[in-house]
């Protein structure tokens, strides 16, 4: 089980291009649908909390998942899994990375990969929309959050805090 956890997160780390949120389609497929380890709602909870706690969000989400399955040992196994591919690849290629990212073929490959990652993320948003945007207030939070980040450069940390506070206010109102 610990090895399985490590290996799943190793694969996810190896194929994550573009940071913590770009990892979501892989998490969804690997640990929600295939392994049934956590639910989609739990992943969303982990991102909500992981955005507001110290450390890198990708690591936070991995630690959460590992802990849920096998306690502290699971948390360590999942975290090692997500970290190891970077550690191995960057260390092995450190001396040629600068040359590599100037290489034309490598850049074409990255462009293709980024287009696919964007398509995967778009599909995640479409699939999650129905479950997460069910009423007017939820739509408002979504719309304001997008506007605040794209046009005002607002920090995701404060957006999550504001959304949480708003949730509490709504609860009082009901």
């Amino acid at each position: 089980m610990l090895l399985e956890l490590f290996w799943s997160f190793f694969k996810i780390g190896l194929f994550t291009f573009g940071g913590g949120y770009a990892m979501i389609p892989l998490l969804q497929s690997e640990i929600v649908e295939r392994k049934n380890w956590v639910s989609e709602e739990e992943i969303m909870d982990y991102y909500s909390i992981g955005q507001c706690t110290p450390g890198i969000i990708a690591v936070n989400v991995s630690t959460f998942t590992g802990y849920k399955l096998r306690g502290i040992k699971g948390a360590v196994a999942a975290t090692l899994g997500i970290v190891c591919p970077s550690l191995i690849i960057i260390t092995a290629l450190a001396n040629i990375l600068n040359i590599l990212i100037e290489n034309e073929a490598v850049n074409h490959a990255f462009s293709g990969i980024r287009i696919v990652v964007i398509a995967l993320m778009a599909d995640v948003i479409i699939n999650m929309w129905r479950k997460n945007i069910k009423d007017f207030w939820q739509f408002m939070v979504f719309a304001i959050a997008v506007t605040a980040m794209v046009f005002w450069g607002a920090s995701p940390f404060w957006i999550i805090i504001a959304a949480a506070f708003f949730g509490l206010v709504l609860r009082k109102g009901n």
Partner: peptide
């Protein structure tokens, strides 16, 4: 209300 923000 936090999940819609994560979606954003």
């Amino acid at each position: 209300t936090v999940h819609p923000a994560v979606l954003a």
